[in-house]
Every structure is written in C-alpha cells, then in structure tokens.
Design a protein around this nucleic acid. Sequence first.
DNA 1: GTTCGAATACTCGACTTCGAGTATTCGCCT
DNA 2: AGGCGAATACTCGAAGTCGAGTATTCGAAC
Lengths: 235, 235
Amino acid sequence: MAATRPSNPLALAVLVLLWERPMHPYEMSSTLRERRKEDSIKLNYGSLYSVVESLQKRGLIEAAETVREGRRPERTIYAITEIGAQIMVDWMVELLSTPKKEFTQFEAALSLAGALPPEQVTELLAQRLRNLHFHQTAADAILAEAAAVRMPRLFMIEAEFSQALLKAELAFVEQLLAELRAGSLSGFAMWQRMHELRRAGVPPEEIEAKLGVEFADDLAFAQDDHALADDEGAT
Amino acid sequence: MAATRPSNPLALAVLVLLWERPMHPYEMSSTLRERRKEDSIKLNYGSLYSVVESLQKRGLIEAAETVREGRRPERTIYAITEIGAQIMVDWMVELLSTPKKEFTQFEAALSLAGALPPEQVTELLAQRLRNLHFHQTAADAILAEAAAVRMPRLFMIEAEFSQALLKAELAFVEQLLAELRAGSLSGFAMWQRMHELRRAGVPPEEIEAKLGVEFADDLAFAQDDHALADDEGAT
DNA sequence: GTTCGAATACTCGACTTCGAGTATTCGCCT
DNA sequence: AGGCGAATACTCGAAGTCGAGTATTCGAAC
C-alpha cells in the first residue's frame, strides 16, 4: 500500500504545522490565521477536520494525547508520523518543482466571453480593472506594513508572488481593454455581427451560414487543415 | 426561489454552448475540445454529466428531444431555458467584472516552503524554472500556429492571458532564485539555522527559544504591536 | 454579579468532484 | 469476413468540499 495523501493543500499545511510541533486542530487554524496563511491556503473548518481525519486514517499523523484545559471541551492533540514527514517532503518537492495547470474562473470566463456582446465585455473589463487597482492598493498596504515592522520578507514571500500575478493580470486587462476600445482585436467585427444577428432573432444555423459568408477570411483557418498543409508544401 | 447555479465553471460552458444551439452532452465535450477550451476549463466526463443534471433540476436547461443516430445509444439533446440564459449572463458579468481570490497550489507551497531547508528549496525552484521555460516554449508554439493559420486572436484570448501569467511567474521565480542564491532574502539566515538545529535533533521548544535569542531583530515584529505603535507615537 | 460579545471548538449533511471503468459502434485494413 | 483500434457515450461510487449552525466559555464592562 503506497502511502497516499489527501488532495487538499490544507492537508499539506497540517503536515507542516505538525512537523513544527504537535497541535490540536483548532490551534492549527488559529496559527494559520496568525501567520496570514489563510490568504494563500483556503481554510475552512469543515475541510480542516475532515482533512485531519483523512490524514490520520492514512497513518500520516496520529493522536498524541487528549487534554482538557479549564472547562473547555476535550481536544485531541495530533503529531506527525515518520511516514507523514516523508510524504510532506515529497509533496512539497512536487508542488515547488513541477508547475501544474491551475484553472482560474477568470480564464474560463474569458474563454467564453464571446457569449456577451463586445460592448458589454468592454464595460465589464473596465469595471474589473478598477477593482484590480483597488485590490492592488490593499495588497501594497499590507506589504508596506510588514516592511514597516521589519518582518523578514521570507514570511510573506507568497504575498509577493500573489502580487506579481495581480500586476500581470492588471497589465493584461489594460492592454486587452485598449484593443477592444480600438476595435483592433482580430475577430472583433464578426463578434459584433453575430450579436447583431442574434438580437434580430435570426436562428443559429442561419447565423452560422451568414457569418461563414461575410467573414470567410476570419473563419478560413477552420475549414481544412489538410488543404492548408498541402498548399504550404506546394508553394 | 431565487434561481441558483452550480459552482463548477463547466456549467457556465454548458450554458454558453446551449445558448449557441441545442446539443447533447457528448457533443458539448467534443465541441469544447475542438475549440481548445479544455485548456481553460477543466473538463471531465463525470462532472459534465452531473453538471448537466444539476442545471436541468434548476430549470436552467431542459431536454428538448432524444434521438438515436444509427444504432448508437439514445442521446438527450438539451436546450437552454430563458432563466438559464439570464443566469448565464449574470454569471459571466460576475466573473468578468469582479476579481475573486483564486488559490493556487504553488502559492500554498511557497507559503509553507520554510519546512524544507533553503538549499533544497533553491534546487527545487531551479527545477521549476526549467519546467516553466519548457511550458512557455510549448505555449508560444501553439499561439504561433494559430497566428500562422490566421485564426482571429479573439478565439484564443484566454491562451494569451494564461501566457501572461506564465511569464509573470517565470520572472518571479527567476528573481526569487537570484535572491536565494545570493542569500539576500531577509530571514534567510534564521531559516538556515532552524534547519541546522532540527538536523541536530534539538526539540521544537528549544529551537524556538534559541532562534528567539539569536535572531531577535528578525522576530521583533511579532513581539508586541502595541509597544511599536506607541513608540512611533512617542518619537 | 451579570450580561454580552468575542473566541473556542467543533458537527453535520447536502452537494460536488473525479476519473477509472464499461459497453458499444464505426470504419479501415487485411 | 473478420479483427482491431479509435471514437462514441456514458455510469458509478468513493472521496472531498463547504459553510452555516451549535454549544460552550472566557473576559471585560457596567
């Protein structure tokens, strides 16, 4: 039986915390909160407890003792096992060294944006841009505060990463917006025409046919890869 | 009863496809594949069928007819409802206009990287950098091919976005790596020392105590925010 | 001494996700 | 005429996710 692991990164956080020292689940959650790790690792109670149970079942952690403090309910203190420590390292190695496609909601929406008319998409992206600027300001403030109290950058490296991505998204949206406003994105006219026809109540098949005629160049790529490939060979 | 929606973006893709024209589930999956949308929207059969069922239960789509072609098994063709079309628009509006924190595995790993010794993390990030370069080359090739066959950029805008993020990650990792190699990231020495002590078998509490003494400046920020705030007021 | 909000510490079950597995059929090659 | 691989079209159940809800207790103020 190969030692398997849960898929939720929260389980990795649990392993790391227990690698530092034994703890009970609630303490894990408050420690993560204190260290601002909830900004980079999705934390919610339901998942925490089920993840801990799952780790225990797999033998990656074990109950060390149960204590009661004051008249508080009993808490189970967990400790990492040797296998658990091994798995933790393996997991970290994988996540750090091997990039894996992450699907974002925005990327999904972008890829389906053709379903809204271009004017509306432009409007919405303008809105997004304002929101992104707002988030950036907030993130800047947090990092500035950390620098002000002389917190070592090591402790917030993930925030710096997150900010780098935010900046990249901002630049992308800004650029895209400019192209939409200029109408210079190839395919734009077809997109507009398609929505015009839909608004006029033209049925799907007819729209497809009309567009195929009106925008033959834009759609040429889809016709026949063979022919194209052959052409290239011939010329 | 407010019309709710499933949370999986695949459901949004289904709505958009059915907004274009009625289809059966398998056709949805092949259409998405043809249009390369599987690169930006996670597609798997199990999810597809359960998402379709969920959409139907909520009245966002409906079975239009069931046909059998040749001797293939029966297929149910679905169509979008009016409510479904409305929800699709709402959903798109939300996703495009409002950025929402997305948790990536890499960000999680970065935030926990302290659990591995700095030398190993450096090594792993170097590996990641090589992998990222490789992925970038592949992504470039896909976009170049699209340009070569004159596919309108509109159809691959999500790929451009994805590439922008990839580029940003590359730059970040490169920069971080440089700082790690130079040992110039603040907190680096403490990080090294911590692993040195662990390797020597020093127990958790003692490590914490020792580091507190040896790296008092690095850890000053955590002591007492009040005192600091007061100091600022006083000076 | 009591009230009241914040913090502690979890539970529950409905909903989602996942991907490997199954069964069929088409079309080509021999 | 038969065999085989690719494509078609889905099913199933185990596992994971989620956040609202519950119950308690501590501490400070009144």
